[in-house]
Design a protein around this nucleic acid. Structure first.
Lengths: 229, 229
DNA sequence: GCAATAGTGTCTTTGAGACAATATACA
DNA sequence: TGTATATTGTCTCAAAGACACTATTGC
C-alpha cells in the first residue's frame, strides 16, 4: 500500500471527511468518538470519518451524511461544513485533505453501544489532527450561540423555554437575562408552541412546550444584536 | 490523461485550491479573474487556482499563498479559508475537491496586465463552479462587514475615517451613522493615527490619516453589537 | 469671509437588563 | 394554603442615531 502511493501523481491526494458530532449532556458540550477498527491508529478513539468515495458520493457533504448514517445511525441531523484540514503529517498514510463537518444532535439517552461521548474541553490526545478539528467545532458552536438559533438543534423536542435558556447559558458559559431571552426567541419566530402541551419539573407552574418550525430544521436564524452584551 | 485517472484508487482525488481575490474599485466589490492558459476551459476567465502539490505545500493554505504569489504577485494579503467545494461534475477532469480561499487587497491602481477585475454582482458565466465560489466569498465579506474589522483590508493605507466609512457603506449597501462609526472604530482600537498626516480631498478641513496596527494585519476584531441595527 | 467636509457634544430613541407582580402546578 | 418555577409588565440603564455646533482647509 505504501509503495503504490509513491507512484501516484502529485495532485491526487487522500481525501477524507471527518464528522464532529456534538451534543449537550451532563451540562457539557460533548463530542462523539468511535474506536477505530483499522490502521492507522486502530483501537484509538477518533472522530467518525472515512474516505470520500468518488464512485458513490455526489460531494463531500454527501460523504459526511453517509458516514453519519453508517457509523452513528443518524438520518439527517443539523449538519454544516466546518473547514478543511490538510498537510503531509496529519495522516500517516500521506499528504491528505480532510473536509470536516459539524453535526448537532439532542443528547441520545442512553448512548448507543460503541459510541463514546466525551466533553470537548477534557479530551485525551486524539489521533490525526482530530484535537484541532474538535476545537474548531467547539469554538464555532459557542460563537454562533451568541447570535443565532444554532443551539435549538441540541435540544430534544419538544422543549420548554427555560430548558433552551439553560442550553444557551451552558454554551455561552454565562447567565442570560431570562426576559431578554424570551423576547429574542419571540422575535426569531422559529418556535411554535405545542398546543396544550406543558411540562412541570416539580411542584410548580408547568412550562409551555415548543418545537422547532419545520422550515428551520436545517437553517439558522440570526439574532438582531446578539443575545447579551 | 483521461485513461490514467480511471485506474486510480477511488479515494485519491483531484485536489485544488481556488482563490477569490477581492477588492473595492469604482464603488463595487470586484473579483480578480485570469485568462486560463490551459485546458480545461483554456482562454476563459476564471479564478486563480491550481493543484495542491503534495511535494511542496505544507497545507492547502500554503498552496493558496503560492498561487497568489505566482499568479497575482501578492506576498501576504489578508487570507482566510472560505469553504470546500466538491463533486464529480465541477471539473471535467473528474471528481474533485477544491479548497477555496478568500483574499482581500486594497484596489491596485492600475490593474496589473492580465488581471481582470469584474464586479461580483455582474459576472459572466464562469467555468467550473467558480460562480458559486465567488458568490460565497461575496456573501461572507458582506456578512462580516456587519460586525467586524474585515473591510480595513480593502482600504489602501494610510486612509482617513471618512474613506473607511464609505467602504463599509458600500459593502453593506446602506448608510452608517458617522458618529456611531467613529465610536465603533475607536472601541475596536485597531487603528493608529499617522502622526501629523492629514489629507484634504477638496477645499475643506483635511482628515486625519490612519493605519492598521501591525498586530491586526491578519486578524479580525469583532464589534460589540454590530455596526448598525 | 464663504463653502465644504472633518470632527465633537449632547439630546432622543431603542432595546437590553433588573425587578416586581401574577399564574399555576403539586404537596 | 405554601412553595417553587413560569410568564408577563414595567422601570432603569446603556448604547445607537439624530442633530447641532465647532474646526480647518482652499478659494
Amino acid at each position: 500500500m505504501n509503495d503504490s502511493t509513491n507512484s501516484l501523481p502529485d495532485h491526487r491526494l487522500i481525501c477524507t471527511v471527518d464528522i464532529v458530532l456534538l451534543t449537550l449532556r451532563a451540562g457539557q458540550l460533548q463530542v462523539m468518538l468511535l474506536k477505530r477498527d483499522r490502521e492507522p491508529f486502530a483501537g484509538a478513539l477518533a472522530l467518525p470519518g472515512g474516505y470520500v468515495h468518488a464512485s458513490e458520493d455526489q460531494d463531500c457533504e454527501d460523504a459526511a451524511q453517509r458516514v453519519l448514517l453508517n457509523k452513528a445511525g443518524l438520518q439527517s441531523p443539523y449538519l454544516e461544513q466546518l473547514a478543511s484540514f490538510s498537510g503531509p503529517a496529519r495522516d500517516p498514510r500521506g499528504w491528505s485533505v480532510s473536509v470536516a463537518y459539524m453535526a448537532l444532535v439532542p443528547a441520545p439517552e442512553p448512548a448507543l453501544p460503541g459510541q463514546h461521548w466525551l466533553p470537548v474541553d477534557r479530551l485525551p490526545q486524539l489521533p490525526f489532527d482530530h484535537g484541532r478539528i474538535v476545537a474548531a467545532a467547539a469554538e464555532r458552536v459557542r460563537n454562533k450561540s451568541q447570535y443565532s438559533s444554532l443551539p435549538v438543534h441540541l435540544c430534544p423536542e419538544p422543549f420548554t423555554l427555560p430548558q433552551l435558556h439553560g442550553i444557551y447559558e451552558t454554551l455561552l458559559g454565562e447567565a442570560i437575562n431570562p426576559v431578554s431571552f424570551r423576547r429574542k426567541m419571540d422575535e426569531l419566530a422559529i418556535l411554535e408552541p405545542v398546543p396544550g402541551a406543558k411540562r412541570a419539573e416539580g411542584p410548580h407552574r408547568p412550562a409551555q412546550l415548543y418545537r422547532l418550525k419545520d422550515e428551520f430544521r436545517q437553517t439558522l436564524r440570526l439574532v438582531g444584536r446578539g443575545l447579551n452584551a
